[in-house]
């Protein structure tokens, strides 16, 4: 068996300090295999987003370790963390966080711009990613002029553009109607199957969770149970 992509040991996260301190994660152990799709399920306030932010290296744990490819991420400098997030991760949030005034193409190529990729290559790769999501005819449109489903596809194109190893999705279908939500889910699982991109999906949608290789049920900052899909 291949070594895990991400390995978490006794992960704890406390917000604040003193009497007002709140322990959002109370000691989690977790291994995510290469190419696996993982759902993080739980009620609102159970600590799902907190866990995802820690896994995505957006925040540092209060204690415990997160190893990426066997490297302890607490040893990485701010610069190395920035580079890892830019190169290895893609993000899809419940809200689109698109720059409404900028073109669809500019929105999609933002991670490449941050990476310092020259403009010409950015455009070529941006158009390819949009084509993959059947949005290439919208490249010149302003992001504001798209429908909700189209916007979420733009967001996925943006998450894909740097050929990431993991896509982190926090409630990716939360803002979409059932039909468009299903289309977006199909796209994500298709990427997982064909390109071997890991998925970490935060959701409270049981159906979405069931489509993942494994579902992790979180309650009050602890793993309540894990379900492996048949």
């Amino acid at each position: 068996m291949a070594p895990p992509l991400i390995s978490v040991h006794d992960l704890r996260k406390t917000y604040g300090s003193g009497p007002g301190a709140f322990e959002a994660l109370k000691g989690l152990d977790l291994d995510i295999a290469q190419g696996e799709s993982l759902a993080i399920v739980g009620r609102s306030g159970s600590g799902k987003s907190t866990l995802m932010h820690l896994l995505a290296l957006l925040d540092r744990p209060t204690s415990g370790t997160i190893a990426l490819d066997g490297t302890d991420t607490s040893r990485l400098s701010a610069k190395q963390l920035d580079r890892t997030r830019n190169g290895a991760f893609g993000f899809v949030f419940q809200q689109f966080f698109l720059n409404a005034q900028a073109s669809v193409l500019d929105n999609v190529t933002l991670p490449l711009k941050i990476a310092g990729v020259p403009r010409r290559e950015r455009t070529a790769r941006g158009l390819a990613a949009l084509a993959q999501l059947e949005l290439d005819d919208k490249a010149g449109n302003r992001a504001n002029d798209l429908s909700g489903g189209q916007k979420q596809r733009v967001v996925i194109a943006r998450a894909l553009i740097n050929r990431p190893r993991v896509i982190f999705a926090d409630e990716p279908t939360g803002n979409l109607d059932t039909a468009t939500g299903a289309v977006v889910e199909d796209i994500l699982f298709d990427l997982n199957r064909r390109q071997g991109i890991n998925l970490v999906v935060v959701t409270h949608d049981e159906e979405l969770a069931a489509r993942c290789d494994r579902s992790l049920y979180i309650r009050d900052g602890r793993i309540a149970r894990a379900e492996v899909a048949a």
Binding site: L58, K79, D82, G87, F91, F97, P111, I114, A115
Partner: peptide, 9 residues
Amino acid sequence: LMKAMGLSS
């Protein structure tokens, strides 16, 4: 968002 996507401070 840009910082999440790796833009340095």
